[in-house]
Amino acid sequence: MGTELGKYKACVSARSTNKEILKRSQDGGIVTQLFAYALEEGIIDGAIVAGPGDEPYRPRPFIATTVDELMSARGTRYNISPNVSWIKEATRSYGLDKVGIVGTPCQMQAVRKGQLYPFGWRDVDDKIALAIGIFCMENFPYQSIKQLVEDHAGVSMQSVKKMDIGKGKFWVYTERGATVQLPLKVTHKYEQPGCHVCLDYVANLADVSTGSVGSPDGWSTVFVRTKNGDDIWGKAIAAGCFETKPIDQVKPGLELVSKLANEKINKNQKTVEGRATFGVDKALRNPYIKP
């Protein structure tokens, strides 16, 4: 295994010990549980999460300052939620000194860039107390999800209970108990274009990052990455927030995570390179070289 999983201090399979959280969480309820713990312990004053928005399954980023609010944001919404847009306001009219934020790998990149290069984020860098990353292969515009669910899966958005991407399929579960699966082949054209230059699968820059891949259903794979993440994760474990299993004792394990990460990075690396010769003697921009 190379650099595709980023730096980490520990990797485990885990799930929350709180049944209430697990009822509606996407996987092992890692995000909601860890924020809830951090909130109760005063490690964070609030967290930026993606809650329900104006339309079904359209996320609305907001600042949760209570466990109830965290609970309302459980579950994955497979379309864009600009969580980072709140990072400064959280420290302003909300008065937060210790901000939690959850986001995709690119959003973790945004947070870290903002800490090292704060162009417009005055007085934010030292207030990011817990950044939780979620694994991400790709994301979708809202309209894409609508078309996938309504056209391809033939389900109305109102009746969706959960969506998931896993085991090579896009899953739609309805409130009435039905399950529809679509091959990932059909989802590709709907992906957000910006995802095709993304070189991070497992949120390498988060304090703690998590996703379903690598762990059994209902469990999550967790990477503990920074000193800060290690500290908080350690305390949460000690407080009995999580059940854990060593990652080398679960199936399908880290190997699958590595495989998917490499697949994503290699594919997108090619896209990035292809952009250099996209036109006739004209390149598309490469943000990894210069602005």
Binding site: R58, P61, N79, I80, S81, P82, N83, V84, S85, W86, I87, K88, E89, G103, T104, C106, Q107, Q109, A110, K113, G114, F119, G120, W121, V124, N139, P141, Y142, Q143, Q192, P193, G194, C195, H196, V197, C198, L284, R285, P287
Partner: peptide, 26 residues
């Protein structure tokens, strides 16, 4: 226009005159 936006929201957070909003993530 360059096919690079992934809807993180950093830009809106940076703007000192609140000129940027996100509409469906962009």
């Amino acid at each position: 226009n360059q096919g690079l936006c992934m809807g993180c929201g950093s830009c809106a957070a940076a703007c000192p005159v609140r000129a940027i909003t996100h509409e469906y993530g962009k």
